[in-house]
């Protein structure tokens, strides 16, 4: 690895980190697990003047039960998230999806908050945050700010974080009784990013679907809710045919790119197929 030279600071608290971010100015960059930033540095695609390493800030790590939601510190690794009993109980969609991120080595270093802040359209966890209607907690020199997931992911690799803000934690609402979930990830190799991914959460009322949330990975510059699918599912019979019919709308309003792994057209096709599979599995049909 031959990156461009940079300064490196390793603050011990959130307040020290914010001071460091402010001091570094617009060419500073926050790093935690480094699993997305380091490859970018290696390829010399980014040239931050200062890296502010928040990885050792203890108050930014861990999962706590905060009543109606879980509070997940942004430094919590994918490995910790996928194995956390609270996450498994109250946000099984997040636990399942975290286990699909890349490979074990990356899951042991990569962090939940870092994954959201990176805002990669092919990232799995932003989609889950959107489906679970999570709230991102950011802190800057002007204090703490909460941003709903639907407002957080702005564009390709662009979040709503201000340059002097740090993502400190994520509030993940507990799914109530009756909800079941599934993340359907499609990639070409086990370690690859999602070509397309679909997060589905379904609340069944006996033979019908009372409520559904469907969010899509890599179907545009940011994760998107498949709202026409959600609408079609609401009140629909919990059958494969009804779910398939609703899933035919999955590509509506999406803006997928064409790349080496799939054309936009194929991604639209995959979105429909995978939405059906995700909802069928989530609904236990």
């Amino acid at each position: 690895m031959i990156p461009i030279a940079f300064d490196y600071v390793r603050p011990g608290t959130i307040d020290e980190a914010i001071a460091a971010v402010v001091a570094a100015g617009e060419d500073g960059k926050v790093i935690s697990g480094g699993q997305s930033l380091m490859p970018v540095l290696r390829l010399r695609l980014a040239a931050p003047s200062t890296l502010i390493d928040v990885g050792s800030i203890a108050e930014m790590s861990g999962v706590t039960d905060a009543g109606d939601h879980l509070l997940i510190g942004s430094n919590t690794t994918h490995y910790a998230v996928m194995n956390d009993p609270l996450v498994k109980e109250h946000a099984p969609l997040l636990a399942q999806t975290a286990a699909t991120v890349a490979d074990p080595a990356i899951r042991h270093r990569g962090t939940f908050g870092g994954s959201l802040a990176h805002a990669d359209p092919a990232g799995d966890l932003p989609t889950v945050a959107l489906a679970l209607e999570a709230t991102i907690v950011a802190k800057g020199p002007n204090g703490t700010r909460e941003i709903e997931a639907k407002d957080f992911f702005v564009d390709y690799f662009t979040s709503a974080l201000e340059p002097d803000e740090i993502l400190v934690s994520v509030k993940v609402p507990k799914l109530g009784k009756g909800w079941t979930t599934h993340y359907e990830k499609f990639n070409r190799t086990a370690q690859a990013w999602a070509t397309v991914g679909v997060a589905a959460a379904v609340r069944r009322d006996n033979g019908t679907i009372a409520e559904a949330r469907v969010a899509l990975t890599n179907m545009g510059p940011s994760p998107v809710r498949a709202s026409s699918v959600e609408a079609a599912l609401t009140g629909a019979d919990a059958t494969v045919d009804a779910i398939a019919a609703a899933s035919a709308n999955a590509a509506d309003g999406t803006r997928p790119t064409s790349d080496l792994h799939a054309s936009a057209e194929f991604r639209e096709h995959l979105a429909r197929v995978l939405t059906k599979r995700a909802v069928v599995t989530a609904a236990g049909v």
Partner: peptide, 23 residues
């Protein structure tokens, strides 16, 4: 893969897929 102008599109192992034992 190259584009029509001769740019290498598979310029990293993120785009050039090598399977691992898992695959």
């Amino acid at each position: 893969e190259y584009d029509k102008d001769g740019n290498l599109l598979t310029a990293s192992l993120a785009d050039y897929l090598i399977p691992s034992a898992v695959d």
